[in-house]
Design a protein around this nucleic acid. Structure first.
Lengths: 223, 223
DNA sequence: TTGAATTAAACAAACGTTTAATTAATTTTT
DNA sequence: AAAAATTAATTAAACGTTTGTTTAATTCAA
């Protein structure tokens, strides 16, 4: 009896956030168009009208969702970039850690973002996601470029190297089934729960990036 | 007058294929759920009922679409794998060429595939796409593994290296806007038309893979 | 004349959104 | 502090569209 009371209070304090949590999960599974307000209301255990009451419309709910969940990586990259004590390679490694941690800990939200990048006709939503991406890209690219200028790194294609970093994680996150295939796990299990996965991905990307960037002593001598 | 006649004949011969072409374009832009049969019928300039007449249902249209367009990479990988005259690195390079060519020449179809991987609740469609992916993954992974066993390659994480290859291309294909940002092009242009892009991606991935796999003489000596 | 291709119209179901009524909570007045 | 007034939260029902699909009639080709 008492427990039930507490539950109700907690729910009503941030019902908005509760709806948003359910929305991320449903959008991730069924897509934005594939998720109906009725589905959402039923799953979140609220009245259908409450969603428009709180957010105004389905589209505005989506935008609210983006804004509340997307600040993290922006701040992380900013912090790393302004840390003068780090070498360019260390910066990259920290950014890789950041992305892997972030993406793997919020697979549903991440899936929603990816979907919105692929579907171009919902322009407002699409544009919102693009903006999120642009600044991060430019920052990471400029770190790589700086390393190349300093001749700490080999001459590479910075934007495409960033694409490889993000793309590797995205590929693993593309679908549970594909991740299970890649990771040699039994189909049906949730691979993103496994802490081993995070370690493996981080290690692989860091090694890949380092191999690609590092100036080989042998090659230097030959010149 | 004569020209019009020919056009009509051609259209009626493979009207099915015409519908499928329009479907790919619309699905890519608006998503599967976001594309209505009416949109599709209007865009393809056929009656609404014709789509169900030809394909049975919207879902069956989608499956037909997959089956007609997805054989290519399968055959390409098969051919490369069975070519005994190639080293493992050459095989990988040819597969990279294959994927880049394929993905960049059919960006719309590729987008549709990606969408279906991200949305898990349309199980029949999802499963169809997964199956396409599984065999290719296993083949490429086994090529890398063979190279590692032969000690031609460094000890790496083969499934994740495959994820990096595909993931890099996918990242570039994720959205026109993102590709323009990555490639430093003016927003609004279609980057996939540019032949330079294909060359740049291929080069980058090949270099990335080679750096990651190659056993460095310097390191060998140290041992 | 038979069978396939094509059409406009209608189908029920589901969609996002709005309404108007009711309950709950908060503030103001007594 | 109690009652009244006001605002906010919540509800069920209905709104007009749009959805995928089907029908029954018609046109076309063999």
């Amino acid at each position: 009896m008492f427990k039930l009371c507490v539950l109700i209070i907690v729910m009503s304090i941030d019902k908005k956030e509760h709806i948003m949590d359910v929305a991320v999960a449903l959008f991730a599974e069924k897509g934005y168009e594939g998720t109906s307000i009725r589905d959402l209301a039923h799953e979140a255990d609220v009245n259908i009208a409450m969603i428009n009451y709180y957010f105004g419309s389905k589209e505005k709910l989506f935008v609210a969702l983006l804004e509340s969940k997307a600040r993290y990586m922006r701040e992380k990259i900013d912090a790393v970039q302004n840390d003068a004590s780090l070498t360019e390679l260390e910066k990259l490694n920290q950014i890789i850690d950041g992305y892997v941690n972030r993406f793997l800990s919020q697979p549903a939200f991440h899936r929603v973002l990816q979907q919105e990048l692929l579907v171009t006709n919902r322009e407002i939503l699409h544009q919102n996601v693009i903006e999120l991406f642009t600044k991060n890209t430019q920052d990471v690219v400029s770190i790589i470029e700086k390393g190349v200028r300093k001749k700490i790194f080999k001459k590479v294609d910075p934007p495409l190297l960033f694409a490889s970093i993000i793309g590797t994680i995205n590929q693993v996150m593309l679908s549970r089934s594909i991740c299970n295939i890649l990771m040699n796990k039994a189909p049906g299990t949730d691979p993103y729960q496994d802490p081993e996965l995070k370690k493996r991905i981080t290690q692989h990307i860091k090694q890949l990036v380092q191999d690609h960037l590092s100036i080989q002593p042998a090659l230097q001598k030959q010149k």
